[in-house]
Design a protein around this nucleic acid. Structure first.
Lengths: 193, 193
DNA sequence: TAAATTTCTTAACCTACCTTAAGTATTTCT
DNA sequence: AGAAATACTTAAGGTAGGTTAAGAAATTTA
């Protein structure tokens, strides 16, 4: 059996039969998206769940003052969408853009629902995916509440070294909730040591 | 069939047979916990998932400077634990205390695992619980990044009116990531209007 | 490869929110 | 009920991080 990146990702948590693999793959749609394109824009229907085979994506919220807040980055082996709107069938609140040209597998909500209903193992798979996403966000809330900007930057660099290489400081700053100028000064202070 | 609060909660998302109900209930352990007692302390093994039948609970992180950050409140019909540590079998990073005397149903991690393995419908149930928890935390991150303290307070009051009645301002402040003094001044400014 | 755009840096000034402190109100404990 | 502890308020002074602006470096586009 071949083993595409998305299958390898699924195999980390559940074991599928050959038929199940075929069915799963039949629900996916591959897509190559050039750099600086949008997979999702605020206000659009959010009917797809994306798996990143390669490339770099960013999800961000744009507030009424025009300020961007980066909600998540996704590199290879990550799932990404505006989950709140995907689940609740609401117009997207987030923008999702490619920072680098990306190869994506997309699964529609109908596909997602069918997969969960027809193959209970996928309920397990997505339970684990959601569980990990939940605990990751909760850790982020804890750190936002208890650490200084400098400490949050350190944690980010330690946790996501791959992402640090691929995104701009402006984008990291908007993930950490600080201005690019302030991040620059944190880095300058650090460089002196 | 009787319908305890925890069964009603489960029934919101999945339909169980009578046998499944019996099995599920056999895994639960009811507990009445007086006000100001701890269900979990930092450093302890976190082997239980708690469902609140009545009462009020608070999970918080205590940082090295002694500052408390409230991670979540739980009132009736909520599930609560230190999920990151529960899932990863790590010593708890959070404290969970009762703010008001509470009636709790607890499910051990072994029970949780058994339930998911033996009744795939429970994979679905917890997938939905985790999904909701994830999107709730993500919304919180978005609001922390894009709103002022005053706006976050307004959102909190609008979203959790029941909780506002049951917890102190100090605790709300520690949820919002501000000091009690600053929350007090926000409320004073508001009262003038 | 040059022009245009975007990113990064530095620095002066600013503000949302913090700290400390002291007083008052409320709750808890005996 | 009275004492002790905790919560809430107010206010003055402080600081982490923001804003504005302008120049230098890097990247993108033509």
């Amino acid at each position: 059996m071949q083993s595409s990146p998305v299958l390898q990702n699924v195999n980390k948590h559940i074991q599928l039969t050959e038929d199940e693999v075929m069915y799963f793959l039949s629900l996916l749609h591959q897509q190559v998206v050039p750099k600086k394109h949008f997979l999702l824009k605020e206000g659009c229907a959010c009917n797809q769940l994306y798996f990143v085979e390669s490339g770099t994506l960013r999800a961000y919220y744009l507030d009424r003052n025009g300020k961007e807040s980066t909600i998540m980055f996704a590199v290879n082996d990550w799932w990404i969408t505006d989950m709140y709107c995907f689940i609740n069938r609401l117009p997207a609140m987030l923008h999702i853009e490619t920072l680098e040209s990306a190869s994506i597998q997309q699964l529609s909500r109908d596909g997602f629902d069918a997969l969960c209903s027809r193959i209970p193992k996928f309920e397990r798979f997505f339970r684990i995916i959601m569980q990990n996403a939940y605990t990751r966000e909760q850790l982020r809330v804890i750190q936002n509440l208890s650490l200084s900007a400098e400490e949050r930057y350190d944690q980010f660099v330690a946790k996501y070294p791959q992402i640090v290489q691929q995104v701009t400081q402006k984008q990291i700053a908007s993930y950490l909730g600080i201005t690019p100028e302030f991040l620059s000064s944190i880095r300058a202070a650090r460089a002196k040591k």
